[in-house]
Nucleic acid binder design. Sequence first.
DNA 1: TAGATTGTTAATCGATTAACAATC
DNA 2: TAGATTGTTAATCGATTAACAATC
Lengths: 213, 213
Amino acid sequence: MSKQVISTPVIRRLPRYYRFLGDLERENVERISSRELAQRMGLSASQIRQDFNCFGGFGQQGYGYHVKELREIIGGILGVNERTGVILIGAGNLGKAIAAHVDFEKRGCNLIGIFDSDPLLAGTSTAGLPIMPMETLNSFCSQHHPQVAVLCIPKDAAQALTDELIAFGIGGFWNFSHFDLRVNNPDVIVENVHLGDSLMTLAYCMHHSTDEE
Amino acid sequence: MSKQVISTPVIRRLPRYYRFLGDLERENVERISSRELAQRMGLSASQIRQDFNCFGGFGQQGYGYHVKELREIIGGILGVNERTGVILIGAGNLGKAIAAHVDFEKRGCNLIGIFDSDPLLAGTSTAGLPIMPMETLNSFCSQHHPQVAVLCIPKDAAQALTDELIAFGIGGFWNFSHFDLRVNNPDVIVENVHLGDSLMTLAYCMHHSTDEE
DNA sequence: TAGATTGTTAATCGATTAACAATC
DNA sequence: TAGATTGTTAATCGATTAACAATC
């Protein structure tokens, strides 16, 4: 299926295409040209055609792209029809919010377990799932084989826990700890999310835009 | 201060430099060369030197960079010593978690108000701040002049509220709603955060890495 | 001074844009 | 058919890397 290696910028644009096509579908738009889509998304028509053609020609000359069809194709590329098992570690403020707020199902993922080291949390539940003690992590993994772990744990705990989770068979990390996970195993994928960095970028742009012109 | 326009990739790396330098400082490392820092961060030494030299020469030939000093300089560029007023709209799961979890102070920001349209939430409080009804937003803004709004509201409400907030004097949006804010006013800065897109990118990389080689 | 490492210029690489022939 | 718009190649632009003279 993956005939060539797709560059990171293209991959990062795919979920955005998927979202915009969903909007269009909800607006009952049947077909769209690269020019129109470009205008909506703030991209160039050329770029859109280049991006789609990394995966094959989904359009039709003289017509454009069929919205519903294109959305399904991109969804397929992104794996929204898979059922990837996901566990979440750290049921603090952020962990609970992510469990409740992120629609895992819609994205090909199943959140199947939440863990926290705090014994006081054991027994309570979030997002319809019971919070389990860390001691049960190992047996849970060997039983249910989750593939992705969401890390909502403090910085200091991140690296050691990651190594453990890799040993338990986890192959992907969605990392919210204030720590850049770096894994040498090439089969393990890491997506670091740094909310603080994003805020600082915003702050920088604010202080350095008004005094420009 | 802003002698030239800095490219987006460089700006987005600044908070990461700031974090790594903080780590080094905590480890009592006094000086570091671009080569060593590059190795730690997974960048090239060339890139680090180029990046820093966008802002001026902070290093010393034959010595490297003074960690504490460099961190302070980059912190200054990022505005961590400013006191930018921030309000947060939407005190649901995610809103509460961001209010509690993100260290605004450390990043030059002051979270000074939380608002929600749900009357049931009015009177309760999060992160030490009372949740206020949306009706008070206008008067609050004219009184306290916040500069940034964090949007943790549903997609459908985002665009209308944004227009309103701009009228109230807000110049920066940290947007967590599932909607790409696009503002035509060039003085208004938008930072869209799409957690779902990040998860999908991770999922894509997982499905398309193992079957490569 | 000699060694190390920066600041900076030039070379390379990759991503975006432009152009246009193919074709629905 | 004529018009529209893709798929795709070539040209441009920008970011990263390499190289090295400057200098601490």
